[in-house]
């Protein structure tokens, strides 16, 4: 059985159809790279999954429990879903008035009601995982973009989510900082976390994912292993997109 099943997800913004029937079964340990042209609804898909956007229609099945994503009423289910998903944003979105350590502790204390000691222990452990221990006392404004994003990843990991959502985690970074963040993501992917990763870093997606989906005009038009999608795309739109991204000619990389 799949870890999470998304069924019939539809979302529009004032008549502008963005998601037009997404069905996706996510297996435990899937690292799903989501690619597609700008404006096709990749971010919207992630945001619907943790209910930052409320779709008109759509269901999500998690551990035998079916949740109606379109229902605005069930606050408890929304909170539960959010606790099962961790989100890493393009703009990091760290809490400005909290130190790196406090940022990671926050959800543990407020949402999971853990004790101060336990929260601190987990937070330090996660900061160490992303190589930010030395910066625990620093505030976001003291940190570079790459460092902030690593703290944001630690913050998401600390909640022990079943599913991690990355929305273009390196797009807001200066080129020299992209590597450190990708390294962290690569490492946690290797640890077996289940994750959805939206990224324009094609080489990285191909390299780190074990499954790739291509979304165009609000539907999944291609779904397969990185090898299948990047080298033998079935759909013309996928071919066109990959050609534009200069990915079709590239030699496969075997450097995981």
């Amino acid at each position: 059985m799949s870890l999470i099943e998304i069924r019939d997800l539809h979302k529009q913004f004032k008549g502008n159809v963005v998601l037009d029937g997404i069905d996706l079964a996510i297996e435990q340990g899937n690292v799903i790279g989501i690619i597609g042209p700008s404006g096709t609804g990749k971010s919207t898909l992630l945001r619907c999954l943790n209910q930052l956007e409320i779709p008109e229609k759509g269901f999500l099945k998690l551990q035998d429990k079916e949740i109606d994503l379109s229902s605005r009423k069930n606050k408890k289910e929304i909170l539960e879903l959010r606790q099962n998903t961790g989100m890493v944003f393009q703009q990091f979105n760290l809490f400005e008035r909290k130190t790196a350590l406090e940022n990671v502790e926050e959800g543990l204390l407020v949402v999971q009601k853990k004790s101060k000691e336990e929260a601190r222990e987990i937070a330090l452990e996660e900061l160490r995982r992303v190589g930010m221990t030395a910066w625990a006392n620093h505030y976001p404004r003291h940190l570079s973009g790459g460092q902030q994003q690593r703290v944001a990843i630690a913050r998401a990991l600390a909640m022990r989510p079943k599913l991690l959502l990355f929305d273009e985690p390196t797009s807001a970074l200066d080129p020299e900082m992209v590597g450190e963040v990708l390294d962290v993501i690569r490492q946690i992917a290797a640890e077996g976390y289940t994750m959805l990763l939206v990224s324009h870093e094609m080489a990285f997606v191909r390299n780190v994912s074990n499954r790739v989906i291509f979304i165009d005009k609000g539907v999944i038009v291609e779904d397969g292993t990185p090898g299948q999608v990047f080298h033998y795309p079935q759909n013309d739109r996928t071919k066109e997109f990959l050609a534009k991204m200069h990915m079709l000619e590239m030699e496969p990389e075997y450097s995981i």
Binding site: M87, F89, L94, M159
Partner: peptide
């Protein structure tokens, strides 16, 4: 910033 509210919401707050 709206981002901080979204981050808090995403944590389940």
């Amino acid at each position: 910033g709206k981002g901080q509210l979204e981050a808090a919401n995403a944590l389940g707050m």
